[in-house]
Design a protein around this nucleic acid. Structure first.
Lengths: 229, 229
DNA sequence: GATAACTGGATAGCCCGTATCCGCTCGCCG
DNA sequence: CGGCGAGCGGATACGGGCTATCCAGTTATC
């Protein structure tokens, strides 16, 4: 509340000096990239380095880390809300639910930082916690799907939440290696949720890639020699 | 390799003084409890406090943290291997697979430390990394089940690994709140793996409990007022 | 009762994060 | 074109949490 902002961009002061504005952009871009790849636990030093500026410059523009996070992820959050909204407006609830899960995971899985923001223990990440906004969407979709009879009658909102957490946890470990890996597991999962027949399930990952993801995740060395370093 | 040990218990020196032996036991017990509840990232100070001794005493008995981890979790690892072995010996591979997944998760989900040891990036946790031992078991079970025609023909070993990671990740967040929560999600998942019909799926969790687990996991406040603190 | 094993917990040392500070640079406006 | 203040980098303060050490005091044991 110190200075009025619109989506993280100050509106009160007169425009920044040209170079400052350029740097500000660089910083936000760098933050987007770094947060996306390494999640929110990335340090501001790394971001500064990645942006080619000093940490001081970062703190000059953004009072604290949270502000930078907000500025960097803001857009993605909006995109996420748009997805929820689109899913909501879907004619049949099952497709809506699948759309929400899939498109949501497209976003979450390509951006670890977004995942951290929405699905991690964080107190009040943006001003009033955007993650609170999703619950009602999911709730109404699940209810409608139950009425339609397209999901098992016992499916709950929390089921969807848990599923989202679990699958995105996987996605987190395979972002850069097999960005679509989660699709298979999501499908296997939704197969279990669906009332009637079993939907299509994407084919297994390439064995080596899958092994590599697991290796990274659980440090369980694959068949290939440990070798270097 | 400094001093010969059997399962973490020294065998070379003459028996410890009575009080020392008593303390050693207390320490291992405390470590078991604390690791089980909070995972391996628990500090030795906490364990010492929990055991009613000083940190010094811990380090007198165990050269470093890893040794303590080994001594504390050793038994659980053996139990895990026993499960894998039993599953292996099952007549039909599907039951074996389900047994392995379920009983394995019984162990993993009741002991965060064990989960950390087996399913986390850790280099060489016990002497030669016990987690490497499981792969062959799973591999052979999956192969046999494929031949039996009880799993989808495209199911892979890595599928099972991923599933284990994902579900145990959930378990990690619900240990003390809904220790059996994972069963439902495991079932939903295996339903997707199974070739033919959909197996029984445990009923949803109590709504409030499920919400609480999610809240703890993703910090997403439930419907109930935030209230205190 | 002598002795050495044992004890507790203060503390050293490390790593890694956020955030601050200050002497210097350089874009902008008169 | 020149001077001034916004802007700059990055060394550094500060804090928290961890593993591991050390040593003066205690106590089981023979």
């Amino acid at each position: 509340m110190t200075s009025p902002t619109v989506r993280g961009t100050p509106v009160d002061a007169r425009p920044l000096r040209a170079d400052a504005e350029r740097n500000r952009r660089r910083i936000v871009d760098a933050a987007r990239e770094v947060f996306a790849r390494h999640g929110l636990e990335a340090g501001l030093n790394e971001i500064a380095r990645h942006a080619g500026v000093g940490v001081g410059t970062v703190y000059r523009r953004f009072p604290d880390k949270d502000s930078l996070v907000a500025a960097a992820l803001d857009e993605e959050v909006a995109r996420m809300l748009a997805v929820a909204d689109a899913a909501q407006r879907s004619d049949d609830a099952w497709s809506g639910l699948v759309l929400l899960l899939e498109e949501g995971l497209v976003l979450l899985s390509s951006n670890v930082g977004l995942r951290d923001l929405l699905l991690s223990q964080r107190t009040d990440p943006l001003d009033d916690g955007p993650e609170h906004l999703f619950l009602p969407y999911v709730e109404s979709l699940v209810d409608r799907a139950r009425v339609e009879g397209t999901v098992r009658p016992d499916v709950t909102v929390q089921d969807v939440g848990m599923l989202w957490c679990m699958v995105s946890e996987l996605a987190r470990h395979s972002v850069d290696l097999a960005p679509d890996a989660w699709r298979r597991y999501l499908a296997l999962f939704t197969a279990g949720l669906r009332a009637g027949a079993v939907p299509d399930v994407p084919p297994p990952l390439d064995e080596e890639v899958a092994q590599e993801v697991l290796t990274r995740w659980i440090g369980l060395g694959g068949t290939r020699a440990p070798g270097a370093s």
